[in-house]
């Protein structure tokens, strides 16, 4: 039964974005392969897929791991069009990465032409408590500002190295997407169908 389910389930396209060297690939690899890779190679683009049960419901995740360096920003809009849900990663040890979170979220709204969209903000590398320069409250504040008009936005602290909250962050993102599809998203989809006729 499960086989037929996994075939029929539509894959969810998750796009992982964030500044350079914040640990997007580490987070994605930890989730999909359950390993922490010590490599320090910058990513241009990688994709992984993983199936899992979330809230007793099958989900097939297509995760797009993207480039963080600002040189690759021209590609951002392109893959943002494809994404159904976004994981915005920053490192709690890197101020610039955090500064970029807000503009990235704004860009998602702009590209998607929506006021609300499922977005998970992940503060990575919290195992490096000594180098920490972004407080949890600071990040919470940012997300709360977005939550005022986008209820499908949440913040979580992760560590790809210790696998802290790694599964949770992806699972929560899928939950947000389901919520979004059940409420706001489905309305818009219906609307667009009507205009087709």
């Amino acid at each position: 039964m499960s086989k037929s389910v996994s075939k029929s389930v539509k894959p969810i396209k998750i796009v992982v974005i964030g500044s350079g060297g914040v640990g997007k690939s580490a987070l994605t690899l930890q989730f999909s392969k359950s390993k922490f890779f010590l490599d320090y190679d910058p990513t241009i683009e990688d994709s992984f897929s993983k199936s899992c049960y979330i809230d007793n419901e099958m989900a097939r995740l297509d995760i797009l791991d993207t480039a963080g360096q600002e040189e690759f920003t021209s590609m951002r809009e392109q893959y943002m069009r494809l994404g159904q849900a976004f994981l915005v990663v920053f490192s709690v040890t890197d101020r610039k990465g955090f500064e970029e979170v807000d503009s990235l979220i704004q860009l998602i709204y702009r590209v998607k032409d929506r006021e609300a969209f499922p977005i998970m903000v992940a503060g990575n590398k919290i195992d490096l408590q000594n180098d920490r320069c972004i407080d949890q409250s600071l990040a919470q504040e940012l997300v709360q500002r977005h939550q005022e008009f986008n209820p499908y936005c949440a913040y979580i602290e992760t560590s790809a190295k210790t696998r802290l909250n790694v599964d949770l962050v992806f699972h929560d993102l899928v939950r947000l997407l389901r919520l979004y599809n059940a409420k706001g998203g489905s309305k818009q989809a219906k609307k667009s169908k009507c205009s087709l006729l």
Binding site: S19, G21, E70, D94, R95, K96
Partner: peptide, 10 residues
């Protein structure tokens, strides 16, 4: 570490 990879403050 991560020179040219990790970016500075905007």
């Amino acid at each position: 570490e991560g020179l040219y990879r990790v970016e500075g403050q905007n």
